[in-house]
Simulated scan of single mutants.
Amino acid sequence: MSATDPTATVEDGPDLKVEERGRVLVMTMDRPAARNAMSLAMAQQIADALDLLDSRPDLSVGVITGAGGTFCAGMDLKGFARGEIPVVEGRGFAGLVKQPPRKPLIAAVEGYALAGGFEIVLSCDLVVASREAKFGLPEVKRGLTAAAGGLLRLQHRVPYHLAMDLVLTGRMWPAPEAAEVHLVNRLADAGGALDAALALADEVAANAPLALAASKQVLVQSVDWPLAEKFERQEAFVDPIRRSADAQEGARAFVEKRSPEWTGS
């Protein structure tokens, strides 16, 4: 989770901008002079925004991006030198990587997503990137390890030998190559990642919010469930959805040939 920019500085004002766009919560890491290196303040603000996303029934999807043409360069080393570690209790580095939100989260990547920045991306459920974006876990070049989820998640997102290549060499990885192995869901022209991510978010948010969150949780948590228990254990997530008002509304809307009006209940 180390940064690649040792000159990162703390700037005035909030480190994170939060905006609601319909059912989508947009979080913009806003420290462009420091290539959006992760500060303790920004980590806490991300954690607070994710709490908001999960608590509001009128919000279905989150989008996280970076200002100034860069996603995130990793940890703010100047803050680290002052004794600040951008970790939030319970949520981990960036207020995110240890405990992502219950609801779907989309990364919109321009420029570099390096070290902890790439680990933020790996914590997201969908990834949209500029064709010029680059990912990387350069920690081994600095005598460190990608301990904010890079070592834990990358091998489950891409083939094993590719994960080893990226971790052990610390090389830059262009977004088009990431798209070839489906780590990136959609590519955009330079400067267009956020707009493409918002279009994807709107597509997701058109669906029932309770069903979205439950579907994500089953996909994430069922990975290590014993085969004989999988169907039984998913019932805790999916049975309440069958009983929900939104399930009834979805059926009525289908019969009446209209768009459903979700209430999140």
Score class of each variant (00 low, 15 high):
A179C: 06
Q248L: 10
F118P: 06
G83E: 09
D12G: 14
A199P: 03
A41D: 14
L25R: 04
L151H: 10
A245S: 14
P14H: 15
E235T: 06
P32I: 10
G13A: 09
V220F: 02
G83H: 06
L162R: 09
A129E: 05
F237N: 02
A148T: 03
D30E: 05
A8K: 03
E177I: 01
G22S: 14
G92R: 07
V88S: 00
S2Q: 05
A163N: 02
M1C: 13
A34Q: 09
V223E: 15
L25E: 02
P86S: 11
A146T: 07
W225A: 09
L16C: 03
R157I: 04
V26F: 07
T169E: 11
A201C: 11
F237R: 04
G136R: 01
V218D: 09
F80Y: 11
L52Q: 14
L126T: 05
I46H: 06
A49G: 07
A199N: 14
A251Y: 15
E256Y: 13
R252F: 11
R157K: 13
A94N: 02
L227E: 15
E249W: 05
R243E: 08
V181N: 03
P14G: 05
T169Y: 10
T169A: 03
A197R: 08
A129R: 02
L187S: 04
A94H: 00
A8P: 02
N185S: 08
T28M: 12
S2H: 13
F93V: 05
V238Y: 11
N36L: 07
V181T: 10
P159H: 06
M42Q: 10
P57S: 08
R258H: 08
A3D: 14
V26M: 03
